[in-house]
C-alpha cells in the first residue's frame, strides 16, 4: 500500500469515527438546549441502544435494520421517560441537581443492563461483511454504512430543524423558553420531542458502530466523554458545531493513532480540548454574543 493510500485510509477512519461521535454529540447538544446542563446519561442511552439491538439481532434473529429502528424507539422512549420522571420535576431546582440526577440515570441504566446481560464483552454480527472499495480505498462495508448513514441522518436532522415548524420549536425553546411559551409553544411537548430525537440518534450511532466494535455496559463512557469534548469545542447547543466538532475529533484520532501511536488515540481528543480552549475559551464556533 502506498503512503497516499494509507492517507486516504486514515481519512476514511476519521470519517467513520467522526460520524459516530457527531451523532452522539448532536443528541447531547439538542438536549443541552432544553436542560442547559450536559446530560451525563446520554452515554448510557447510547449503550442501551447497542444492547437492545444486540438482543433483537442475536437472541430474536431480527434483521439488522429493523433492530436499529427497534433500538431507536426503545431508547427514544427511555429518553422521554427520563425527561418526564427525572428532569421535569427538577425544572426549578439549581442546575447542579440536574447534573446529579443525570449521573443517577446513567448509573441506573448501567446497573439494569448489567443485571440483565452481565458485564462481559459481546460482539454484534455485521450485517454486511464484504469489503467495498471506492477508488483505491478499500474498507469493510460497515464503515461505508456508518459514514453514509450518519451523513444522511445529519442532513435529515438539519432539514427538520431548519425547515419544519416542529423543528423550529426545538430551537425556539433553546433560544428563549419564556418567549417560546408566550407564542403558544407547549414547552413540555417540545422537551419530550427533543429527548426522543436525542435518544434515537444515540441508539442509531451505537447500532451503526457496534459491529466494528464491542458491546459492553461501559461502552458509552469514552464516547460520551468525547461527545462532551465535541460540544465544548463546537459551542454548547450548536448543531453545526456538533457535526464539525465530531469530524475534528474523529480525524484527530485516526491520524494521531496512525502517525503518532495507537496507544495515545483516546488522549488526543482531550489534548485537543485543552489546546483549543486555551485559545478559544467559548469554543470554536460560538460567535461573540453572551
Amino acid at each position: 500500500m502506498s503512503s497516499i493510500d494509507l492517507f486516504f485510509q486514515q481519512i476514511l477512519n476519521g470519517l467513520t469515527l467522526g460520524s459516530v461521535y457527531g451523532l452522539v454529540a448532536l443528541g447531547l447538544t439538542l438536549v443541552y438546549g432544553i436542560l442547559h446542563v450536559p446530560n451525563f446519561s446520554h452515554g448510557a442511552l447510547y449503550m442501551v441502544g447497542a444492547f437492545v439491538a444486540f438482543f433483537l439481532i442475536v437472541d430474536l434473529g431480527i434483521n439488522y435494520w429493523v433492530a436499529m429502528i427497534g433500538a431507536a424507539a426503545v431508547v427514544a422512549i427511555l429518553g422521554v421517560l427520563s425527561e418526564r420522571l427525572v428532569f421535569t420535576p427538577l425544572r426549578h431546582a439549581p442546575p447542579i441537581h440536574d447534573k446529579i440526577a443525570a449521573i443517577g440515570v446513567l448509573l441506573f441504566l448501567e446497573a439494569v443492563i448489567m443485571a440483565i446481560w452481565g458485564a462481559e464483552f459481546r460482539r454484534m454480527p455485521a450485517p454486511y461483511t464484504e469489503m467495498l472499495s471506492i477508488g483505491n480505498v478499500a474498507a469493510p462495508a460497515q464503515r461505508w454504512l456508518i459514514i453514509a448513514g450518519a451523513l444522511l441522518l445529519m442532513a435529515a436532522l438539519h432539514l427538520f430543524l431548519k425547515k419544519t415548524i416542529a423543528g423550529s420549536t426545538i430551537s425556539a425553546l433553546a433560544q428563549n423558553r419564556e418567549g417560546a411559551s408566550l407564542v403558544g409553544i407547549d414547552a413540555s411537548r417540545v422537551a419530550m420531542l427533543t429527548f426522543a430525537i436525542s435518544g434515537a440518534l444515540a441508539a442509531v450511532a451505537a447500532v451503526l458502530f457496534a459491529p466494528i466494535n464491542l458491546v459492553y455496559p461501559a461502552m458509552g463512557h469514552l464516547v460520551i466523554m468525547k461527545a462532551f469534548v465535541i460540544i465544548i469545542l463546537g459551542g454548547m447547543g450548536s448543531v453545526p458545531g456538533a457535526i464539525l466538532g465530531g469530524m475534528i475529533i474523529g480525524f484527530a484520532e485516526s491520524f494521531g493513532a496512525f502517525y503518532i501511536s495507537t496507544d495515545y488515540k483516546d488522549i488526543i481528543a482531550f489534548v485537543l480540548l485543552v489546546v483549543i480552549l486555551s485559545f478559544r475559551p467559548n469554543g470554536l464556533f460560538t460567535q461573540g454574543e453572551r
Binding site: S168, A172, Q175, N176, E178, G179, A180, L182
Partner: peptide
C-alpha cells in the same frame, strides 16, 4: 397574547 418585558425574542433566528 403577551409581549413581554425584555422582548424574549429568538435571537439567532
Amino acid at each position: 397574547v403577551h409581549c413581554p418585558e425584555g422582548r424574549k425574542l429568538f435571537p439567532k433566528m
